[in-house]
Protein backbone atom coordinates (compact mmCIF):
# COMPACT_ATOMS: atom_id res chain seq x y z
CA UNK A 1 0.00 0.00 0.00
CA UNK A 2 1.21 3.43 -0.89
CA UNK A 3 1.08 5.65 2.17
CA UNK A 4 0.94 8.92 0.24
CA UNK A 5 -2.28 8.63 -1.71
CA UNK A 6 -4.90 5.96 -1.56
CA UNK A 7 -8.14 5.84 -3.46
CA UNK A 8 -11.15 4.23 -1.93
CA UNK A 9 -12.37 1.23 -3.94
CA UNK A 10 -13.77 2.56 -7.22
CA UNK A 11 -12.63 6.13 -6.52
CA UNK A 12 -15.78 7.47 -4.79
CA UNK A 13 -16.03 7.49 -1.00
CA UNK A 14 -18.57 5.17 0.60
CA UNK A 15 -21.01 7.91 1.61
CA UNK A 16 -21.16 9.18 -1.96
CA UNK A 17 -21.74 5.70 -3.30
CA UNK A 18 -24.50 5.24 -0.77
CA UNK A 19 -26.17 8.45 -1.92
CA UNK A 20 -25.92 7.43 -5.57
CA UNK A 21 -27.23 3.92 -4.84
CA UNK A 22 -30.26 5.43 -3.14
CA UNK A 23 -30.87 7.55 -6.23
CA UNK A 24 -30.50 4.44 -8.41
CA UNK A 25 -32.96 2.48 -6.28
CA UNK A 26 -35.49 5.27 -6.56
CA UNK A 27 -34.91 5.46 -10.31
CA UNK A 28 -35.48 1.71 -10.67
CA UNK A 29 -38.65 1.97 -8.61
CA UNK A 30 -40.06 4.69 -10.90
CA UNK A 31 -38.99 3.70 -14.42
CA UNK A 32 -38.09 6.70 -16.57
CA UNK A 33 -38.33 9.26 -13.76
CA UNK A 34 -35.31 11.54 -13.45
CA UNK A 35 -33.98 11.38 -9.89
CA UNK A 36 -31.81 14.33 -8.84
CA UNK A 37 -28.55 13.40 -7.15
CA UNK A 38 -25.56 15.29 -5.90
CA UNK A 39 -23.13 14.78 -8.73
CA UNK A 40 -19.45 14.84 -7.74
CA UNK A 41 -16.45 16.27 -9.49
CA UNK A 42 -14.73 13.43 -11.30
CA UNK A 43 -11.15 13.40 -12.57
CA UNK A 44 -12.36 13.96 -16.13
CA UNK A 45 -14.24 16.79 -17.81
CA UNK A 46 -18.03 17.00 -18.10
CA UNK A 47 -19.08 15.49 -21.37
CA UNK A 48 -16.69 12.58 -20.94
CA UNK A 49 -19.18 10.46 -19.09
CA UNK A 50 -18.94 11.70 -15.50
CA UNK A 51 -22.54 10.63 -14.84
CA UNK A 52 -22.00 7.14 -16.22
CA UNK A 53 -18.70 6.81 -14.33
CA UNK A 54 -20.36 7.72 -11.02
CA UNK A 55 -23.14 5.19 -11.60
CA UNK A 56 -20.62 2.51 -12.53
CA UNK A 57 -18.41 3.36 -9.54
CA UNK A 58 -21.41 2.97 -7.21
CA UNK A 59 -22.54 -0.42 -8.48
CA UNK A 60 -19.25 -2.08 -9.33
CA UNK A 61 -17.80 -4.79 -7.06
CA UNK A 62 -14.46 -6.63 -7.11
CA UNK A 63 -16.02 -9.58 -8.97
CA UNK A 64 -17.50 -7.53 -11.78
CA UNK A 65 -16.21 -7.58 -15.32
CA UNK A 66 -16.37 -4.20 -17.02
CA UNK A 67 -16.74 -3.34 -20.67
CA UNK A 68 -16.75 0.27 -21.88
CA UNK A 69 -17.85 1.34 -25.34
CA UNK A 70 -17.92 4.66 -27.10
CA UNK A 71 -20.14 4.79 -30.20
CA UNK A 72 -20.04 1.00 -30.15
CA UNK A 73 -16.23 0.85 -30.22
CA UNK A 74 -14.01 -0.52 -27.44
CA UNK A 75 -10.88 1.20 -28.70
CA UNK A 76 -11.73 4.92 -28.81
CA UNK A 77 -10.30 7.47 -26.37
CA UNK A 78 -13.31 7.75 -24.12
CA UNK A 79 -13.74 3.99 -23.81
CA UNK A 80 -10.04 3.29 -23.28
CA UNK A 81 -9.60 5.95 -20.62
CA UNK A 82 -12.68 4.97 -18.61
CA UNK A 83 -11.71 1.31 -18.79
CA UNK A 84 -8.19 2.19 -17.61
CA UNK A 85 -9.67 4.34 -14.86
CA UNK A 86 -11.64 1.47 -13.35
CA UNK A 87 -8.80 -0.99 -13.88
CA UNK A 88 -6.72 1.34 -11.74
CA UNK A 89 -9.11 2.52 -9.03
CA UNK A 90 -11.12 -0.70 -8.61
CA UNK A 91 -8.70 -3.31 -9.92
CA UNK A 92 -11.59 -5.01 -11.69
CA UNK A 93 -11.28 -7.27 -14.64
CA UNK A 94 -12.10 -5.58 -17.95
CA UNK A 95 -13.14 -7.06 -21.23
CA UNK A 96 -14.17 -6.11 -24.72
CA UNK A 97 -16.55 -9.06 -25.09
CA UNK A 98 -20.18 -8.22 -24.51
CA UNK A 99 -21.05 -11.72 -23.38
CA UNK A 100 -18.40 -11.75 -20.65
CA UNK A 101 -19.19 -8.37 -19.15
CA UNK A 102 -21.37 -7.92 -16.07
CA UNK A 103 -21.37 -4.12 -16.38
CA UNK A 104 -21.23 -2.32 -19.71
CA UNK A 105 -20.77 1.43 -19.67
CA UNK A 106 -21.80 2.94 -22.97
CA UNK A 107 -21.76 6.19 -24.81
CA UNK A 108 -24.35 6.27 -27.60
CA UNK A 109 -24.81 2.59 -28.48
CA UNK A 110 -26.41 -0.60 -27.21
CA UNK A 111 -24.37 -3.69 -28.13
CA UNK A 112 -25.68 -5.77 -31.02
CA UNK A 113 -25.56 -8.97 -28.98
CA UNK A 114 -28.73 -9.38 -26.96
CA UNK A 115 -28.09 -8.49 -23.32
CA UNK A 116 -28.93 -11.10 -20.71
CA UNK A 117 -30.41 -11.12 -17.24
CA UNK A 118 -27.80 -10.05 -14.70
CA UNK A 119 -26.02 -7.66 -17.01
CA UNK A 120 -26.20 -3.92 -16.37
CA UNK A 121 -25.97 -1.31 -19.09
CA UNK A 122 -24.84 2.12 -17.86
CA UNK A 123 -25.46 5.05 -20.19
CA UNK A 124 -23.56 8.32 -20.21
CA UNK A 125 -26.19 11.01 -20.69
CA UNK A 126 -25.49 14.59 -21.72
CA UNK A 127 -29.02 16.06 -21.49
CA UNK A 128 -31.54 13.92 -19.62
CA UNK A 129 -34.58 16.12 -20.20
CA UNK A 130 -36.41 15.14 -23.41
CA UNK A 131 -38.48 18.34 -23.31
CA UNK A 132 -35.52 20.65 -22.79
CA UNK A 133 -35.24 22.15 -26.27
CA UNK A 134 -38.98 22.78 -26.40
CA UNK A 135 -39.43 24.12 -22.89
CA UNK A 136 -36.35 25.75 -21.36
CA UNK A 137 -37.79 26.15 -17.83
CA UNK A 138 -36.90 23.29 -15.49
CA UNK A 139 -39.82 24.14 -13.16
CA UNK A 140 -42.18 23.80 -16.10
CA UNK A 141 -40.76 20.54 -17.47
CA UNK A 142 -40.94 18.95 -14.02
CA UNK A 143 -44.57 19.96 -13.80
CA UNK A 144 -45.22 18.56 -17.26
CA UNK A 145 -43.70 15.22 -16.24
CA UNK A 146 -45.68 15.22 -13.00
CA UNK A 147 -48.98 15.90 -14.79
CA UNK A 148 -48.12 13.71 -17.78
CA UNK A 149 -48.48 16.61 -20.22
CA UNK A 150 -46.52 15.26 -23.13
CA UNK A 151 -48.29 16.94 -26.06
CA UNK A 152 -45.23 19.08 -26.60
CA UNK A 153 -43.12 16.05 -27.44
CA UNK A 154 -45.37 15.43 -30.41
CA UNK A 155 -45.01 19.06 -31.48
CA UNK A 156 -41.35 18.26 -32.09
CA UNK A 157 -42.23 15.20 -34.17
CA UNK A 158 -44.86 17.24 -36.03
CA UNK A 159 -42.21 19.81 -36.90
CA UNK A 160 -39.98 17.04 -38.24
CA UNK A 161 -42.69 15.77 -40.58
CA UNK A 162 -43.71 19.28 -41.64
CA UNK A 163 -40.12 20.11 -42.57
CA UNK A 164 -38.75 16.83 -43.86
CA UNK A 165 -41.79 14.80 -44.78
CA UNK A 166 -40.97 12.17 -42.18
CA UNK A 167 -39.82 11.97 -38.57
CA UNK A 168 -36.22 13.07 -39.06
CA UNK A 169 -35.08 12.61 -35.47
CA UNK A 170 -32.47 9.85 -35.71
CA UNK A 171 -30.92 9.88 -32.27
CA UNK A 172 -32.13 10.72 -28.75
CA UNK A 173 -35.51 9.62 -30.02
CA UNK A 174 -38.07 10.09 -27.21
CA UNK A 175 -39.61 7.00 -25.66
CA UNK A 176 -42.42 6.37 -23.20
CA UNK A 177 -41.42 4.06 -20.36
CA UNK A 178 -43.96 1.68 -18.84
CA UNK A 179 -46.79 3.85 -20.19
CA UNK A 180 -45.94 6.76 -17.93
CA UNK A 181 -42.74 8.83 -18.18
CA UNK A 182 -41.36 10.17 -21.43
CA UNK A 183 -37.62 9.63 -21.42
CA UNK A 184 -34.63 10.63 -23.48
CA UNK A 185 -32.71 7.42 -24.22
CA UNK A 186 -29.47 9.51 -24.35
CA UNK A 187 -28.07 10.15 -27.83
CA UNK A 188 -28.24 6.53 -28.96
CA UNK A 189 -29.35 6.10 -32.57
CA UNK A 190 -33.06 5.30 -32.81
CA UNK A 191 -31.89 1.99 -34.31
CA UNK A 192 -31.25 0.89 -30.71
CA UNK A 193 -34.63 1.98 -29.29
CA UNK A 194 -36.33 -1.40 -29.90
CA UNK A 195 -33.52 -3.10 -27.98
CA UNK A 196 -34.52 -1.22 -24.83
CA UNK A 197 -38.04 -2.62 -24.97
CA UNK A 198 -38.41 -5.43 -22.43
CA UNK A 199 -34.66 -5.88 -22.24
CA UNK A 200 -33.52 -8.55 -19.79
CA UNK A 201 -30.68 -6.33 -18.60
CA UNK A 202 -31.00 -3.47 -16.13
CA UNK A 203 -30.43 -0.11 -17.83
CA UNK A 204 -29.11 2.82 -15.77
CA UNK A 205 -28.65 6.37 -17.04
CA UNK A 206 -26.31 8.88 -15.42
CA UNK A 207 -26.10 12.57 -16.30
CA UNK A 208 -23.21 14.10 -14.33
CA UNK A 209 -23.43 17.72 -15.36
CA UNK A 210 -27.22 17.76 -15.09
CA UNK A 211 -27.28 15.85 -11.78
CA UNK A 212 -29.86 13.28 -12.84
CA UNK A 213 -30.11 9.50 -12.70
CA UNK A 214 -32.86 7.46 -14.32
CA UNK A 215 -33.39 3.82 -15.05
CA UNK A 216 -35.26 1.19 -17.03
CA UNK A 217 -35.60 -2.04 -15.02
CA UNK A 218 -35.56 -5.40 -16.84
CA UNK A 219 -38.70 -6.42 -18.77
CA UNK A 220 -40.03 -2.85 -18.90
CA UNK A 221 -42.05 -1.51 -21.81
CA UNK A 222 -40.15 1.13 -23.77
CA UNK A 223 -42.21 2.52 -26.63
CA UNK A 224 -40.95 5.07 -29.15
CA UNK A 225 -43.36 7.97 -29.72
CA UNK A 226 -44.88 8.42 -33.17
CA UNK A 227 -47.98 9.40 -35.12
CA UNK A 228 -50.64 6.95 -36.28
CA UNK A 229 -49.96 7.85 -39.93
CA UNK A 230 -46.19 8.20 -39.45
CA UNK A 231 -45.17 5.17 -37.38
CA UNK A 232 -41.77 4.77 -35.76
CA UNK A 233 -39.14 3.13 -37.98
CA UNK A 234 -35.47 2.38 -37.48
CA UNK A 235 -32.61 3.09 -39.87
CA UNK A 236 -31.95 0.58 -42.65
CA UNK A 237 -28.65 0.13 -44.42
CA UNK A 238 -28.45 -0.83 -48.05
CA UNK A 239 -25.26 -2.83 -47.84
CA UNK A 240 -23.93 -5.18 -45.15
CA UNK A 241 -20.82 -4.50 -43.06
CA UNK A 242 -17.76 -4.33 -45.38
CA UNK A 243 -15.61 -6.33 -42.98
CA UNK A 244 -17.86 -9.03 -41.56
CA UNK A 245 -20.86 -8.98 -43.87
CA UNK A 246 -23.35 -8.52 -41.02
CA UNK A 247 -26.83 -7.30 -41.88
CA UNK A 248 -29.47 -5.80 -39.58
CA UNK A 249 -26.77 -4.05 -37.55
CA UNK A 250 -25.91 -0.39 -37.11
CA UNK A 251 -23.14 0.69 -39.49
CA UNK A 252 -20.61 3.54 -39.41
CA UNK A 253 -19.39 5.20 -42.57
CA UNK A 254 -15.59 5.21 -42.76
CA UNK A 255 -13.84 7.51 -45.27
CA UNK A 256 -11.05 5.62 -47.05
CA UNK A 257 -9.36 8.25 -49.22
CA UNK A 258 -9.83 11.77 -50.55
CA UNK A 259 -11.48 10.61 -53.77
CA UNK A 260 -14.85 9.74 -52.32
CA UNK A 261 -13.97 6.20 -51.28
CA UNK A 262 -15.83 4.98 -48.22
CA UNK A 263 -17.05 1.84 -46.58
CA UNK A 264 -19.67 0.88 -44.06
CA UNK A 265 -18.56 -1.14 -41.06
CA UNK A 266 -20.20 -2.36 -37.87
CA UNK A 267 -20.35 0.33 -35.23
CA UNK A 268 -20.11 -2.44 -32.59
CA UNK A 269 -16.44 -3.47 -32.92
CA UNK A 270 -16.75 -6.48 -30.64
CA UNK A 271 -19.65 -7.85 -32.66
CA UNK A 272 -17.67 -7.39 -35.88
CA UNK A 273 -14.54 -9.10 -34.51
CA UNK A 274 -16.50 -12.05 -33.18
CA UNK A 275 -18.16 -12.54 -36.55
CA UNK A 276 -14.87 -12.40 -38.41
CA UNK A 277 -13.35 -14.92 -36.01
CA UNK A 278 -16.30 -17.16 -36.72
CA UNK A 279 -15.42 -16.99 -40.43
CA UNK A 280 -17.84 -14.34 -41.76
CA UNK A 281 -16.28 -11.99 -44.30
CA UNK A 282 -17.54 -8.89 -46.05
CA UNK A 283 -16.52 -7.37 -49.39
CA UNK A 284 -13.47 -5.50 -48.13
CA UNK A 285 -12.61 -8.05 -45.45
CA UNK A 286 -12.09 -10.66 -48.14
CA UNK A 287 -9.68 -8.41 -50.07
CA UNK A 288 -7.74 -7.76 -46.88
CA UNK A 289 -7.32 -11.47 -46.31
CA UNK A 290 -6.26 -12.09 -49.91
CA UNK A 291 -3.51 -9.49 -49.89
Amino acid sequence: MNAVANYNFAYLDEQTKRMIRRAILKAVAIPGYQVPFSSREMPMPYGWGTGGVQVTASIIGPDDVLKVIDQGADDTTNAVSIRAFFAKVAQVQTTTHTAEASIIQTRHRIPERKLEAGQILVYQVPIPEPLRFLEPRETETRKMHALEEYGLMHVKLYEDIARHGRIATTYAYPVKVEGRYVMDPSPTPKFDNPKMHRSEALQLFGAGREHRIYAVPPHTDVVSLDFEDHPFTIQHFEQPCALCGAEQVYLDEVILDDRGGHMYVCSDTDHCEERREAGHVGVLGMKEAAE
Partner: peptide, 10 residues
Protein backbone atom coordinates in the same frame (compact mmCIF):
# COMPACT_ATOMS: atom_id res chain seq x y z
CA UNK B 1 -53.46 21.90 -28.15
CA UNK B 2 -54.81 19.02 -30.23
CA UNK B 3 -51.71 16.96 -29.52
CA UNK B 4 -51.95 17.92 -25.86
CA UNK B 5 -55.39 16.34 -25.63
CA UNK B 6 -54.20 13.18 -27.31
CA UNK B 7 -54.55 13.65 -31.07
CA UNK B 8 -51.98 11.38 -32.70
CA UNK B 9 -52.83 11.52 -36.39
CA UNK B 10 -50.51 13.87 -38.29
Amino acid sequence: RLMAVGDRHY
